[in-house]
Amino acid sequence: MRSNLLKPGPIQGRSNPVVPSISESAKQAADEASEESGWIERACAGDTAAFRRLVERYGDRAYGLALRMLGSPEEAEEAAQDALVRAWRALPRFRGDSRFATWLYRIVVRRALDRSAALKARRARETTLEETELEAPPSPDLPGSEGVSRRLDQLLGSLPEMQRAAVVLYYYEDRSVEEVARTLGLPLGTVKTHLHRARALLRAGWELEERRSGIE
């Protein structure tokens, strides 16, 4: 069940988007799921063409997730590629007790966190302590990433890794809190705390930027 506790904006009077009828979208989702489980089964048995279909379906999202976590397109591509190849190797161990997407995102997040740790260690070796403290991770060049969007991306890049991962999965990848917890391997309460703290940090950074731009 999807927890909507943290979904933003109940006081904004959001208008309901035009969506296809429930039965229509449910049927489409069921078709996609059955198609996907066929690909997974065949890919488990070693069918690379079936795995290709999975990569075509999830490649962009795996890359997008890595990009939002790492900030650098090159690093994101490496991390996503590495994660997908690992997923191929590990697929025979995929038990199907979580959604394929959740399982794959877990691998992507792990690869991104590893790369991020390695990058941080490399940067720390290359720069002095003062520079490291001042340095924020690069802000990804994302579509619509100008003005306020870019500001948010920069603030997102300055969040601690787990908070950033939780925000990216929950808001951008539209996962439920439960799925975020499963993906990150954290208790539900910890994920909620990460999301609460991330909102507070993002807001504080945002207000600071507002005040700065007001002074200038």
Binding site: G9, Q12, L142, P143, S149, Y171, Y172, R203
Partner: peptide, 14 residues
């Protein structure tokens, strides 16, 4: 922030 997090005006990453 929430408007941006909800993806208003934000394209899909490819």
């Amino acid at each position: 922030i929430d408007a941006l997090l909800r993806g208003e005006g934000r394209g899909r990453v490819e």
